[in-house]
Design a protein around this nucleic acid. Structure first.
Lengths: 208, 208
DNA sequence: ACATGACATGTCATCTCTGACATGTTTACT
DNA sequence: AGTAAACATGTCAGAGATGACATGTCATGT
């Protein structure tokens, strides 16, 4: 082992972080329903369009969570529409729930980004493959920056109104722009890091 | 519904992205074992120290995946040590597996960042709570930038050697620095966005 | 001789999400 | 009148991860 915290700190009978793995959908749905009543179908669409780029969710997860939320009194049936459509409305209890999360909930700061995980293992790649990969990535990140930038510009010209919800979305988009810009710059930077010397310490062949 | 792609594109019988939810641990373990043989305990420690800040994993998941990996011939028993310790070594098949992932696997670019999800719902918070939250976040992100920066400086002074694996880690750390810097700047920026007007379009009270 | 703590591996109930499958309803075009 | 497409909701087996629980091994100090 290299540098390190003692393992037994976490191991035997210690209460861990208690960070909820994906209670996120629970709050995400409440947050969306705080805007306006919606059906599972509507919510699925919203995940497909915008939120899903940050926090993916498919319809089985959504319908399932909707059922649980209703059971627990965080939301309630608002109306039944034409094709079996069921729209839900958030209850005061639900609104309190999501607000408590926002102001008092533990924040998980882990950046679960697959490209970052991959970067730990770049040393296993051939230099030319790595180079090609990083170029592709930089390109892709730049295209996202462009996409979000144009959305932000439209918003700043008042195209979607000036309400609080739109303003929140604008803030989220700004995060996207800055994050993807950072990732694009990082990819460019990484592509210019010289390939390493073969590592003497281990038996596995590194990138030649 | 607002702007949007037709839902039926994904719905009826279309093959979805097939993006693997967390096949990531499978590859992460292979990547770590490509460096040197290790036991479940060692690998758990490494997740706790470094990798876990990017991709968390607890010991039950690790021991479980290790078993599957061995069953499938991606890794093999290297040695049995003092206290039931079992160290595994990656096989040629396993090395091929992780390399194929790195060079040919689909990349999932979704930034699963809880702070970003939260930002979609900032409009539900009281302005002063939001302000306090953003200040705390900015502070925290800055502390991470500092931490990773000092690590990078140590590395650049040759403190951990110059091997390929260390160089990869340096690249990952650079991503962390840039990402957290972007997030710190974003938090500062967001704290200075003026609170929105009450939104006329819906019935739920927004931040006053 | 024995207790303690670090080392080390495992099981299990439970939770969440996913892809595949299944189904019913309404509109629009031909 | 018929059929295709969009609208809309659901079930289910299975994968993957988690916290809690359980157990066994070795070194050290008393």
């Amino acid at each position: 082992m290299s540098c390190g915290t003692s393992l037994s700190e976490w191991h035997p009978h210690v209460k861990a972080d208690m960070y909820s793995p994906a209670m996120s959908l629970h709050y995400a749905l409440l947050g969306l329903l705080a805007e306006a009543p919606a059906s599972g179908y509507d919510l699925t669409a919203r995940f497909g369009e915008v939120l899903g780029h940050i926090w993916p969710a498919r319809h089985p997860a959504i319908y399932g969570e909707l059922g649980r939320l209703a059971e627990d009194g965080f939301i309630e049936l608002e109306s039944e529409g034409p094709r079996r459509r069921k729209a839900y409305r958030i209850t005061p209890k639900g609104l309190e729930e999501v607000r408590a999360w926002l102001t008092a909930g533990e924040v998980d700061h882990t950046p679960r980004l697959e490209p970052l995980l991959r970067s730990c293992f770049f040393w296993l790649m051939e230099p030319e493959d790595l180079r090609a990969y990083l170029d592709r990535e930089a390109e892709y990140f730049r295209s996202l920056v462009e996409k979000y930038t144009s959305y932000a510009a439209a918003k700043d010209h008042g195209e979607f109104g000036t309400g609080a919800r739109v303003q929140s979305l604008r803030v989220t988009v700004e995060a996207g722009i800055r994050l993807y810009q950072a990732l694009a710059d990082w990819s460019d930077w990484a592509a210019r890091v010289p390939p390493a010397q073969p590592d003497p310490e281990d038996g596995i062949e590194t990138n030649r």
